[in-house]
Design a binder for these strands. Structure first.
Length: 509
RNA sequence: GCCGCGUUCGUCUAAGGGCUAGGACACCACCCUUUCACGGUGGUGAUACGGGUUCGAAUCCCGUACGCGGUACCA
């Protein structure tokens, strides 16, 4: 009997979601949807000391912006609630106790000081990081080294204690990673990880196994940094729920920054965003810039992230979310880490701006314009303008410099490019041009261009010589889309008025 | 140190024993365009190193180097 694919993503609310995190969600989502399964979001907040207020809401907002809606979560509900691990605290202890009874785990009473002392004492050049493992557990204060009476006494006195897994010696634990194939570990080299903390909260190791079992998770993608603790999870599955019921794992390669692992700092250092959306740390007040605020389209962001570690084997690079869902295949996910390249990210965004109708992002651009103090009243006109200039915009914030002149007639004219060749004949051309424009009934770029060329020839001036002056009259300088397209969008009245006004500021001859 | 994972143009990658190692970003040149872009054409540029296996290796095996991750009562 084949059970339905259920994939989960489990972020910890300790800060904004960075590129690697969003990519992990994305792959979880794509896999779930590709197989017609469910996508579950569970909050891993068992470390209260690192919980950052607002981070959970931020995660949901990021997912909403990206269009990756979970089927089950703290916000969407679901049959396996609660989806916040801190609210599931009560259920973990029994599993830890069960492991102790079976001899796979033990109580440890060591204080933080005792642990420090052990690590200090055992530290040598050959072993800079001594572990709490089978070689040292006999010398520590735990239910393996202490007598049964002593242990009972300590427990009865409610001595603070943790529960640690008892890693077997000299066993090989292996599992099949969906991306890497078979991966194996010698259990002697793995330490006795804490499963249940002194405050009764589980560590990630216990929680992830218990919750994945309880929530009937079948597959999960996580970062490569989890690979070393996989043997602990495999063993827990074997002891608790049966190794054959273990979800399939996929460990994703890391996303790297310009120098090594991508970090929050890289954003400020190299001038590119590392989070999906702006994130302000409530404790430090530190702002980390987001792709959204930088002017990225979610489609481009998702597309770029998806390609950073996967491709469909063809030369196609532009994919919508629907296409990604349809074509995503686990076999094509890469093993090696990828360095994030902001230039390429911008290229994706540029492509998406060109590809999408301006209507789909006009609300965002309008907001940007309002921030600049420009109120947009005519939506149809606004959309026409965006459509005309979008080819030259890489991020949404570029629209301002490429189209502000459509909404405000220029006040200053940069006449330097034409000054040398300006003469009375040209001036008189522009003096008579407006009245000719008045008579145009079919106001389109093509008609205007024809009329313009005809009149130029009548005045025995090369049309090319007159185009730049016209452009400067309409927009104030040497920029913008093709002149006659500008005139078309501006409309008859505005075009005529701009030419007349400009002529006042142009040299007398 | 130990354990694990990885390594193709500067960057993202294709090629899963067989063409001249293909594409994209970036860069350069030319074309288009009397603005700037878009677009088009072309160019520079890579299999980390050393051994095997094979008629034949980027591809399979071993070693080395390098990179990254882990080595917490963090996730």
């Amino acid at each position: 009997m084949e059970s339905k694919v259920r994939v989960r993503f489990a972020p910890s609310p300790t800060g904004g979601l960075h590129l690697g995190g969003v990519r992990t969600v994305l792959y979880n989502y794509l896999f779930a949807r590709h197989h017609g399964g469910e996508f579950i979001l569970r909050i891993e907040d068992t470390d209260q000391s690192r919980y950052v207020p607002g981070a959970e809401e931020y995660i949901f907002e990021t997912l909403a912006w990206c269009g990756l809606q979970p089927d089950e979560s703290t916000q969407h509900g679901g049959p396996y609630a609660p989806y916040r691990q801190s609210e599931r605290k009560a259920s973990y202890r029994q599993y830890a106790e069960q492991l102790v009874q079976a001899g796979h785990a033990y109580y440890a009473f060591d204080t933080a000081q005792e642990l420090d002392a052990m690590r200090l004492k055992l530290r040598t050049e050959a072993n800079p990081n001594p572990q709490y493992d089978h070689t040292v557990r006999g010398q520590m204060r735990n239910s393996l080294s202490l007598s049964a009476e002593e242990t009972k006494q300590l427990l009865d006195n409610r001595t603070p204690h943790v529960i640690r897994i008892k890693m077997p010696e000299g066993e090989t634990v292996s599992f099949t990673d969906m991306i890497r194939g078979e991966v194996s570990f010698d259990t002697s080299t793995v330490d006795d990880k804490v499963l249940l903390k002194a405050d009764g909260m589980p560590t990630y190791h216990l929680a992830v196994v218990v919750d994945d079992h309880l929530m009937k998770i079948t597959h999960a993608f996580r970062g490569e940094e989890w690979l070393p603790s996989a043997p602990v999870h495999v063993l827990l599955w074997r002891y608790l729920f049966g190794a054959e019921n273990m979800p399939k794992w996929a460990h994703l390669p890391l996303i790297l920054g310009p120098s090594g692992k991508l970090s929050k700092r890289d954003g400020a250092k190299y001038g590119f965003p590392v989070f999906a959306m702006n994130w302000t740390d409530p404790k430090s007040g530190e702002l980390t810039e987001g792709f959204r605020e930088r002017g990225f389209l979610p489609q481009a962001f998702i597309n770029m992230l998806a390609m950073l570690g996967w491709n469909d084997g063809t030369e196609q690079e532009l994919f919508s979310l629907e296409e990604l869902v349809q074509k995503f295949s686990i076999e094509k996910v890469h093993k090696g880490g990828a360095k994030f390249d902001f230039e390429k990210a911008k290229w994706f965004n540029h492509e998406w701006i060109k590809k999408q109708p301006a209507a789909s992002y006009k609300t965002e651009v309008k907001q940007l314009f309002e921030q600049k103090g420009l109120h947009i009243s005519d939506d149809v006109y606004f959309e026409q303008v965006l459509e005309l200039v979008k080819d030259r915009c890489t991020v949404l914030t570029d629209f301002w410099e490429h189209s502000a002149f459509f909404f405000k007639a220029p006040r200053q004219f940069d006449t330097t490019p034409i000054l040398a060749k300006w003469n009375p004949a040209k001036r008189s051309f522009f003096e008579s041009f407006p009245s000719a424009l008045k008579g145009v009934s079919d106001w389109s770029a093509g008609t205007l261009e024809n009329l313009f060329k005809q009149m130029a020839e009548q005045s025995s001036i090369k049309p090319g010589e007159l185009q730049l002056p016209l452009r400067i009259m309409l927009v104030g300088g040497k920029f913008g889309p093709p002149v006659f397209h500008i005139a078309e969008v501006l409309g008859k009245e505005e075009t005529i008025s701009r030419i007349k006004d400009a002529l006042q500021s142009f040299p007398a001859q």
